[in-house]
Design a protein around this nucleic acid. Structure first.
Lengths: 145, 145
DNA sequence: GTGCTTGCAAACAGTTTGCAGATAG
DNA sequence: CTATCTGCAAACTGTTTGCAAGCAC
């Protein structure tokens, strides 16, 4: 899905929920949907402040929480403290996380869906989300070794 | 693997590393290997303090870090702040996490290994670990709905 | 005896909260 | 006009760090 479509989708969802469409929220959704990487709250805050000096970190957190509760944003916790966010693919999918440079990439796997199905059927849980994180050295960092 | 065997294995690994076998470390490994659930550092501390009043939370963290770096303990980050630890199955495996009662259970899946293989081959990453967490409502909490 | 380990307390980082003032609808 | 939202700052939580005293080897 291209960023523009996703942007409009999120705006639409907020409208449905009768949430106020403040400039801050619109700007955050803009940045979130156009980010190729998986930024932390602080990184989003930095990117926003450049073009939106009045934005505050607290508002970033509040808006991310709102979108998270709506199921429109994925929270990825790497073991580096801060949570990372993915607003482009709200459906779960595997991530590749480099243990050296901390970069996060999306991974494709045909088996992810089947595994979710298998677990759903055998566990008795009603599954509402999953996180599939793979840790390792990315190609760049392997060379640097 | 039964708790006793795993306990001895961990003690052995520490010896190999020439680490001191202090009473604190032995007690923590005892609790860790006999825990059916996935306790946080604070929970481990509470369980230890009962029979070991001099134990400090800092030591719990330091010992967990040591075992984690040795690859003998899994760190599971739920989105509830604190990290949970699993010392019984150091090889990665899927976890089921209840979003209501926060309980964490082990899940079995035949596909987990294949998926890891697939990702390893297509990503260019050298994979050293993975985390497969499934979020949902456990059978108990589904009934309570 | 040596140097790793502990316990304590202070420091730290990320996140959450409370509230007065601002503003979208 | 009103209820929601923002911005700020203080509070909180989990974790890390530094260092003197203790103890495994």
């Amino acid at each position: 899905m291209d960023p523009e479509t996703r942007f409009n989708e999120l705006i639409q969802r907020l409208r449905q929920r009768q949430c106020r469409l403040t400039p801050q929220r619109i700007a955050l959704i803009r940045v979130l949907t156009s980010s190729e990487d998986h930024p932390t709250a602080a990184q989003l805050y930095d990117r926003l402040r450049a073009q939106f000096p009045t934005m505050s970190l607290g508002t970033v957190y509040k808006t991310l929480d709102l979108l998270f509760e709506m199921g429109e944003v994925l929270e990825i916790s790497v073991s580096d403290g801060a949570a990372h966010y993915d607003g482009r693919k709200p459906f779960p999918h595997p991530h590749l996380i480099c243990i050296r440079c901390r970069k996060i990439r999306d991974a494709e796997s045909s088996l992810a869906e089947n595994m979710t199905l298998e677990i759903t059927q055998t566990s008795g849980f009603r599954i509402v989300g999953h996180r599939l994180d793979f840790y390792g050295l990315c190609p760049d960092c392997r060379q640097a070794e």
